[in-house]
Design a protein around this nucleic acid. Structure first.
Lengths: 159, 159
DNA sequence: TTCCAGAGTATTGTATACAATTAAATTGCC
DNA sequence: GGCAATTTAATTGTATACAATACTCTGGAA
């Protein structure tokens, strides 16, 4: 253990990303304050505006969130009039999330506000694409490594 | 409002970063499970290992977290034996966060574990530096823009 | 000296996240 | 058709985040 390198916060990519994520979150939440949407609520609405209705599970796959997070979030969106939660007739395990008229009406206002935010960010499409592409690589590597660790655990358990 | 561009989740840099942040969080939390540290607890320990003792305020400046988050987090770290919280003698408003012997003893084990994680990530120093540098640019822009919006709000209020 | 504005921490209330469990409905398989 | 395994949401418990508030302490001005 004598050959261990120090780990400095300022050199950690994870912290840089964690910090950026919080700043983005705050930025959009502030920009969307007139609509009363939090950041996670906003990305849920984005997915629903792309293609509603969706089940909780389908929405969760896009957002990488489970029902433990989504159920209360969607109840709040319902309370504020953005969505309705309807138990599916064909499969009563599922709950379909529909857009309300208000959500459909306000969609372009929100789109427009986000467009302004993107302009304020002042990045070119190329810069954004490049950065997202690097992030995809990192995320894939994290998924792979997490999966390996899972396999390793399983192997350990069989010993 | 007829000239509004659609906003697609998969094209949002913010979501890419939000998603990566969650994956990193999960990855490190899993790697540090033998030590019982969550990700935010781990980065707090990193800062303390660099320079303890620190006041709650100083720690919060490094981590960009306020006492509303840190106080309960530090109480949990104290409960688990990593730190002690001592009211300052010279200024009784402040609480100094000290490392325990256990924390000092286990530091290199954690450093070593994190070193393994960095290896698993499989990125070169250059790649990491480059990405962090881009993130700094984005974060500075977000800070600037948030500040502008704040100014704008103040101007609005005077009208 | 007294008083008070500001600093530092803790607390409260709201909203995520996520693991683990529960409960209900559906599917497969005999 | 009957039932075990699976799927889907909801619930429970723990841990962040953060705005807003409360409370204590400090240092300086009147």
């Amino acid at each position: 253990m004598a050959d261990v390198n120090p780990v400095l916060l300022d050199e950690q990519l994870c912290f840089s990303i964690y910090s950026a994520s919080k700043k983005f979150n705050h930025f959009y939440q502030s920009a969307l304050a007139p609509f009363g949407l939090t950041y996670p609520q906003y990305i849920a609405m984005l997915v629903l505006w792309e293609k509603a209705p969706l089940t909780v599970h389908q929405l969760g796959e896009r957002l990488e969130l489970d029902s433990g997070t989504l159920t209360p979030l969607l109840k709040r969106l319902e309370k504020q009039g953005w969505v309705s939660r309807v138990r599916s007739q064909t499969d009563e395990r599922q709950v379909l999330i529909h857009l309300t008229e208000m959500a459909t009406t306000k969609r372009d206002e929100v789109y427009s506000r986000i467009g302004q935010c993107q302009t304020l960010l002042g990045m070119t499409s190329n810069e954004i694409d490049s950065m997202m592409s690097e992030l995809v690589t990192v995320k894939e590597q994290l998924d792979t490594v997490s999966h390996q660790r899972l396999i390793a655990k399983k192997v350990d358990q069989t010993n």
